Simulated assay, not measured.
Amino acid sequence: RGVRVGPEPHQVVPVVPAACVFDLGRGGDWRARPDASVGRAAAEAAGAAGTEVALGNVGAGTGAVVGAVKGGVGTASVRLASGATVAALVVVNAVGSAIDPHNGALYGEYGDGPLQLPGAEAHLRAQELIARSRERMGLPPLNTTLAVVATDAPLSRPQAQKLAGTSHDGLARALRPVHLMHDGDSVFALATGAHGDPSDGGLDSVELNHVLAAGADVVARAIARGVRAAESTDGPGGTFPSYCDLYGS
C-alpha cells in the first residue's frame, strides 16, 4: 500500500505523517522502513553517545546523496554574543549540488573564512567523475534534505516557527538548485529555553535577529560538513563518490 515510486508493484511508500529521507532504490530492502521502534532506538543511541554526534554515512545519512555525490549527516553550532547557542543537524540528501562547478568549493563554506580551493586539474577530473555518476543515476532522483535547528535561547512558538523559516536560507546557500519539485526539504526548530527565562519577556528584537541569522549560518555549515564527512559507496543502487575522494580532504 502507498504511492508507487518505482517500476515494481512492491516499490511503494506508505502515506504517513512523518519526515523521512527518500533513499529507496539505492540498495538494501524496499520493505525495510523506519518505524516507532527504530526512532526510539536512534534516540536512545544518541543519548548514550553523549555529546559526540556521528557524521557522514550513519543513520538517516546512510543512503543520502547530494547531486551525484555521497551525502550524509552533518552538524554545526555557534555561540552568540548573548551566550546562547544555536546548532543544526542536517541530513544532506538533495537533488541539487553542494559543489561549485567552477572551482570545486563547497557552497556551504563560502563566507566561513578563506577557502582552500583544489587545483584546476583535480577539479576537472572530479567533474568528469561526477558527470559519470549522474549519468548512471538515470531517472530524476527523489530526495529530501532534513534539518533540525536547536537553541537554548527562550523562544516562543511563533519565534521558533520563524527560526525554522529563516534556517531554510541555509539550504539555499549550501545547495544549488534547491527546493525543486523532486525535493522534500524540511527544517524543524526547537528551543530548550535553558539560557534565559521566557517569563522575563524572552528575547528582544536584536537578540532574536541574531538567533534567526545564526539558524541559516549553521544549516549551511552543517551541510558542508556532512558532505565532507561522507564516504564513497558502491552498491546495487549505484556508485556515489564522496567529496573527499574526489577532491581530497
Rank of each mutant, 00 (worst) to 15 (best):
L142K: 14
V12A: 07
A105M: 07
A174T: 09
A164I: 07
G61M: 04
R79Q: 09
G201I: 07
F22T: 11
V148F: 00
A230L: 06
A174K: 09
A122C: 04
S199M: 05
G111S: 09
V66P: 10
S186K: 12
T85D: 04
R4F: 00
T192N: 07
A147M: 07
V5Y: 02
G165M: 10
A220D: 11
H182K: 14
P241K: 13
P140S: 10
G184Y: 02
T144C: 11
L246D: 06
G193C: 07
P141L: 05
V15K: 08
R40H: 05
G237R: 07
G50R: 03
S82M: 00
A46V: 03
G248D: 10
G238R: 06
Q127T: 15
A54Y: 01
T192V: 03
C244K: 14
S133W: 06
P141N: 02
G56I: 06
S82G: 08
G56W: 03
Q159G: 02
H195C: 03
D152S: 01
T239G: 07
A150T: 13
G165S: 13
A46Q: 10
V53H: 01
D185P: 12
R125F: 00
T239I: 09
I223T: 14
E44D: 13
R228E: 12
A222H: 05
E8M: 10
A174G: 08
D217A: 10
A60G: 14
D35I: 03
R221G: 09
R173D: 06
V5E: 08
G248H: 11
G226K: 08
R176D: 01
D169R: 14
R4C: 00
P236S: 11
A54N: 04
V73N: 02
S156I: 04
G63C: 05
L146T: 12
F22A: 15
Q159A: 14
E128L: 15
A174H: 04
R4P: 10
D197S: 08
P7E: 11
V149G: 08
G63P: 05
G27I: 03
G108V: 11
G72I: 04
R79T: 15
A174V: 08
V78Q: 12
R176W: 01
V3N: 08
T75V: 15
A41E: 10
V187P: 05
G72Q: 06
S97F: 03
L139V: 11
G47L: 14
G39R: 15
L203N: 02
